[in-house]
Amino acid sequence: MKILVCISHVPDTTSKINFTDGDTKFDTNGVQFVINPNDEFGLTRAMWFKEKQSAHVTVVNVGGPETEPTLRKALAIGADAAIRVNTPATDGFSVAKQLAQVVTDGNYDLVIAGRESIDYNGGMVPGMIAGLTNANFVNNCINLEIEGTSVTAVREIDGGKETVSTTLPLVIGGQKGIVEESDLRIPNMRGIMMARQKPLTVTEPVAANAETNSVKFEKPAPKGAVKLVSPDNLDELINLLHNEAKVI
């Protein structure tokens, strides 16, 4: 089985979000970048398929050279090869078109992407790859088992979960649950050394128009001070929630 894991290179979850150039660009100053958490869960599941079912695992990112340390980290965790499509990731649709091309060129059986990226929060790239390559698609995937070309997957739905059966080729939008938090791996020294020897191929993008354009960013208005209610006066809290906030 050939697996492609899509890796989004995102600001660490503790990052302060700021913008530059008249609020049109994300300010990367002092920001630490990491593998998108949903992709890290998916990558860890891919490692399981590699170890238990001899799958071959390639990681891919659409982005500039600055994303290579993130791809190297994925190699250190255990992926066999990495691909970087050399173009800035502007909108979800054009990123999906680049990734669909990689999928077609490499004949992958399984594409693991994240349910959403924590920076753009598009929630669209995996579904678009599936649509563009005519593969089956399971979103919000929290369990994945594969035997030959038969797939059993569990997807989270609003208020519960659903077990589905399907076949390869398949794209999933993964999240926590596909592996547990405690299964995540921190690269060790040997992994980091080996990652240096593994191939990181840079490919040039296919032509794709941006279907959407980011015009401007804005930060939420600062919050007013909290109204404190004494624990001895909870009637006041109910009063405020009922009459002032009008939420109960």
Partner: peptide, 23 residues
């Protein structure tokens, strides 16, 4: 923005060749 609508939206975007804005 239900789980189901977010699931089908990117497929629909491909079928209609439409730009999609979520959230």
């Amino acid at each position: 923005s239900s789980a189901n609508s977010k699931y089908l939206a990117p497929l629909l975007a491909v079928y209609l060749n439409a730009g999609y804005a979520s959230n």
